[in-house]
Design a protein around this nucleic acid. Structure first.
Length: 577
RNA sequence: AGCUCUGUAGUCUAGCGGUCAAGGAUACGGGACUCUGAAUCCUGAGACGGGUGUUCGAAUCACCCCAGGGCUACCA
């Protein structure tokens, strides 16, 4: 019964770092463990998903937190598939999750060629041995009761349970039966192995919980080797113990499982009779985000009923979704650190996520000028055959990002929103007879508004310009623009929050959560972007000045048609009014 | 109802008997600056669920109450 791969992995431990101030409650517990020497100063965390769905931003926070805690204490982080139920699990989910954790930056390969990805199913033999040990100690028995009978025996939160008629089988009989269960001699549902604890225990989970069930089903990892599979409570603590996990951090709903987690670990011993390694389970509150749903069932519904375009729809807060949208892993890391960790139920306002994304992107993204909804502007006093190159900064404060050349010419485009025929008092942009500064170029004055004869819609503007560069005169507003001589068409996808209600799961009478879907959560426009972007690397990010941060989408972009996702708009204290 | 966990500004969080007339972040209001109504920089308003007790002293300890969550799958 080798304890763990832990010793070999210890070589990876880095120098001790002081944890940051403002210890959250988990770090406080770890400090206490270190002070008392419970784990010899080691910190080894893990994140153990079942491969039966997609990981979302809440999982990402937990993964990143577990990882960071381990790193801050010079410890180790494991990513482990808790794959004990072959019915619900699929290899495709395994692969998707591995892609997610690589993207998050917590995947690690060790010098010996191994990595930090583990499978609970790799320990099935060990689990079985431990179960035999429990039987031998008279602490587990084979029960022939049906599922219904067992449910009946369990009692309820207000009534004691009753003991199974099979509870007092002899150890020999139990060993024999359990071996035959393993040899696949019995059909599904005919027998289970149960721990013998206390049918009167106030905690329902302690009323002789099932630890093995018969399931004649192939497993994505172990194939046809097994027809009995361990239950979560049996497997989980053992997985943690085997890997040498010190702090086993999970969500609040497992709080009531902790006594069982501890009970199993306390009964089992190694050859010399000493107890097996016993990690500490710690529970924290999972993350919820306003105007979004993160539950597996409801997310499945959004996908299956076509409200979104798959699991990686950029409006979804799955890891695949935010990645496809263009959000960075660093922004998620920042978010995790910003929201902290506690045991209170919470719904975090999406604006906090937005802030973290903007803050990360602000210093990383070169600025470019693009026009989402073009309005043609003709500079009447500018020569038709003239093209002028202007050298501009790629970033207002980070000079290292360099410069690029843009073109000014007689025909340009500005944003439709930057012109208003009858503007309010405090409108800084363009309107009839008024002036604005074209960013990086000239000041123009709107002389004439040309309208479509049939529809009455504004089709173009005639403006004059002052041929003076670096003009510091009194103009209040500065708008972005793009020259007809220096643009290509591109598709821009603009996202808004998926739900209009802060907590869509809190439904009013007669409503369901999908009633709160935001009909305007996706808008696709034909934008004009600077020509040089056709050679930009797919997957790169830019700030379109005054519009937001955009991601050159690598999957949907074609050679002759780029697709930009708006990751997040800029803060806008004007349009809020 | 039994067991159990949680209540600090709109939101998230710090606080571990005095240094708390409660700190930070975000959101919000005001202002400065600005060739992005961005960023940045000032600045304002905003909270200890309630009660009783222990104590010289309570956000912090105890008890009671109230509110919210979790647990009754051969799921995890």
């Amino acid at each position: 019964m080798a304890q763990t791969k832990y010793p070999e992995l210890l070589k990876d431990i880095t120098d001790d770092k002081e944890p940051e101030e403002g210890l959250n409650f988990i770090r406080a517990i770890i400090e206490e463990h270190n002070k008392t020497g419970r784990f010899g100063g080691k910190v080894h965390t893990r994140f153990p998903p079942e491969p039966n769905g997609w990981l979302h931003i809440g999982h990402a926070c937990s993964i990143l937190m577990n990882h960071k805690i381990a790193m801050d204490y010079g410890g180790i982080f494991n990513f482990r598939f808790d794959d004990t139920n072959p019915i619900t699990e699929e290899e495709s989910y395994v692969n998707a999750m591995i892609e997610d954790i690589k993207w998050l930056g917590v995947y690690k390969e060790y010098e010996d060629g191994s990595n930090n990805i583990f499978f609970g199913s790799d320990y099935f033999d060990q689990f079985y041995e431990y179960a035999e040990q429990l039987v031998e100690k008279g602490l587990a028995y084979v029960d022939d009761s049906s599922a219904e009978e067992i449910k009946e025996q369990r009692g309820s939160i207000t009534e004691h349970g009753t003991e199974s008629p099979f509870r007092e089988r002899t150890i020999e009989e139990n060993i024999n039966l359990f071996k035959r269960m393993k040899k696949c001699e019995f059909p599904n549902g005919s027998k289970v192995l149960r721990a013998k604890i206390d049918m009167k225990h106030p905690n329902l989970l302690m009323r002789d919980p099932i630890i093995y069930r018969i399931l004649h089903a192939p497993h994505h990892n172990t194939g046809d080797k097994w027809c009995i599979y361990p239950m979560y409570d049996w497997a989980h603590g053992l997985e943690d113990s085997i890997e040498g996990i010190t702090q086993s951090i999970c969500t609040l709903e497992f709080e009531v499982h902790r006594p069982l987690y501890d009970w199993f670990l306390d009964q089992l011993t190694v050859e010399d009779g000493s107890p097996i390694f016993h990690p500490q389970q710690i529970e924290f509150a999972k993350v919820n985000i306003s105007h979004m749903v993160l539950g597996k069932r409801v997310m499945i519904q959004l996908v299956q009923e076509g409200y979104v375009d798959g699991w990686d729809d950029p409006r979804m807060l799955t890891i695949a979704g935010v990645r496809r949208r263009g959000v960075t892993a660093e922004a998620l890391r920042k978010f995790m650190e910003t929201i902290g960790v506690s045991k209170r139920d919470k719904i975090i306002d999406q604006s906090i996520l937005d802030y973290c994304i903007r803050e990360d992107l602000n210093t990383k993204c070169p600025r470019v000028m693009s026009v989402l909804k073009p309005l043609k502007v003709v500079i009447t006093n500018y020569p038709a055959d003239k093209k002028e190159e202007i050298e501009v900064q790629n970033h207002p404060t980070i000079k290292e990002m360099g410069t690029r050349k843009i073109i000014f010419s007689k025909t340009i485009y500005i944003e439709q929103d930057d012109f208003l025929e009858s503007p309010p008092e405090d409108y800084y942009r363009l309107s009839p007879g008024e002036k604005v500064r074209l960013k990086n170029a000239y000041i123009i004055k709107c002389e004439e508004v040309i309208k479509d004869e049939k529809t009455g819609e504004i089709s173009e503007l005639h403006c004059s310009y002052k041929p003076k560069k670096n003009d510091n005169s009194e103009v209040r507003g500065t708008i972005h623009w793009i020259s007809a001589e220096n643009c290509i068409k591109a598709k821009a996808r603009l996202f808004d929050r998926l739900f209009v209600k802060e907590n869509p799961m809190e439904t009013e009478e007669g409503k369901v959560f999908t009633d709160y879907l935001n009909p305007q959560s996706l808008e696709i426009t034909e934008a004009l972007v600077e020509t040089f972007l056709k050679d930009a690397q797919l997957g790169s990010r830019f700030q379109f000045e005054r519009l937001g941060y955009f991601y050159l989408e690598p999957i949907d972009s074609k050679e002759n048609k780029l697709v930009f996702n708006r990751i997040i708009s800029l803060r806008d204290s004007w349009s809020k009014k």
